[in-house]
Simulated scan of single mutants.
Amino acid sequence: MNIVERFINYTRINTTTSREKGAAGIMPSSPGQMELATLIKTELAGLGMEDIVLRDTAILTATLPANTNKDLPTVSFFAHLDTSAEQTSDTKANIVSYQGGDIVLNPALDIVLKEAEFPEITQYQGQEIIVTDGTSLLGADDKAAIAAIMHALQVLKANPKIEHGTVKVAFLPDEEQGLRGAKAFDVESFGADFGYTLDCCGIGEFVHENWNAGNAVVTFTGQSAHPMSAKGKLKNSLLMAHKFIAMLPTGEAPEYTEGREGYYWVKEMAGNSAKTVLKMDIRDFSQQGYAHRMAFLQQLADSCQALWGEGRIDIELSDRYENVANSLEGEAGFPIDIAKQAYQRNGIEMRATPMRGGYAIAKRPPMPEYLYGCAQLPFDLRIFAGEFIAGGE
């Protein structure tokens, strides 16, 4: 089976994640995810994979044993089974020979993919691309990745002369609602030395860093008083919160930053004149920058305490997650080096892209997702089918 056939077969199974069932703790949150996992399990068995395990959570893992005595690390590849909850309709995939301009997805409903709105399609001119009929998501996020992983395994099995170490694969449910499958995944028992998640971006884009992320909860305690006799007595916690926000660095907010620029995000505020609670997100790519931001907030709170009096302000700082790049420094960065070499050998320029979000959970507009199968369907994993997995010459 070729990679396009695989992908289209996967799109025929509706794996829309269910936020309602997810909130109730049910995993997988939709039956289609287990249906897809069961199909993949059958295909893995047909390819001769070993240690195939499908859990009742729809977490599916398998192993391709090494075919060499060389001491090579165990590499792993991950993809997720579910598609976004934004669209629940069944997918009707269609292959289009794209020669430029707009693409009419659905003449009957007058649904058109306009080049002016999605100029990224121009890079696929002269190629066959896969689109929907415009009434649903394509599901290339992340079924293109599943098809790519399965294709790579097929290539390795069909070409035993390609030396490779142990390869492990994992397919996880409910990524689209807070990485629920990843959080339930048993990393230790999986036994891989390192891994690659296939989810996002175009040919050549490679994400290996994200935020260092923290939370701040600032509580302002005022003093109520009747307005008739408020002079010298009323201490308005709402105004304290506004003054605190006004003392944050100008321009260091999400709406003013890009690339590797960090920020303070004033995310939520609720209360009254007596008590106000402010919630903030803190983000920075560097460990030093992140530590500086957290220290600044603590110092600001301490200064306000000295100004307003004991008990008027309380700040609670906590870490949410780390930049994955923190663990890929020095000799530990060899997975990045391997990927870079594989890109070069296949004539693809690697473009390292910082992820301005949690690792691999950046939000995308729902409807443009039918672009994500366009031309890049083989994904960069087409280049993983030999030298990438072997880790070099």
Rank of each mutant, 00 (worst) to 15 (best):
A253Y: 00
T250R: 13
F244N: 02
V207P: 00
G271K: 00
P254H: 10
K233T: 09
G232R: 14
T257R: 12
V207R: 06
V207A: 10
V207Y: 07
A216L: 02
N272V: 12
K233N: 05
N210L: 08
T197I: 15
E258R: 07
D193N: 14
F190D: 02
D174A: 15
M228G: 12
Y196I: 15
F220G: 05
E255G: 09
V217C: 08
K275Y: 11
Y263T: 03
E255F: 12
A182F: 11
A216K: 00
D193S: 09
H242E: 05
A230P: 07
Q177G: 07
M240H: 03
S273V: 10
F194W: 08
K275S: 11
T197C: 14
M269Y: 04
D199C: 10
K231M: 09
M269Q: 02
S224K: 02
F194K: 04
R260N: 03
K243Y: 12
K233Q: 11
R180V: 14
V218Y: 09
E176M: 09
A192G: 10
F244M: 05
G259E: 09
G178P: 07
F190N: 01
V187H: 10
D174I: 12
L238Q: 04
V187M: 05
E188S: 06
W265Y: 09
P249S: 13
M240G: 06
P227H: 14
Y256D: 00
A246N: 13
Y264E: 00
K233P: 00
F220V: 07
L179T: 07
K275W: 14
T257N: 05
S229K: 15
Y256M: 04
L248I: 05
A216G: 05
L239D: 01
T250N: 13
G202P: 00
G204M: 10
Y263H: 08
M269L: 13
L234Y: 01
S189Y: 04
E255K: 11
H226W: 04
S189I: 04
C200D: 08
C201D: 14
V266S: 06
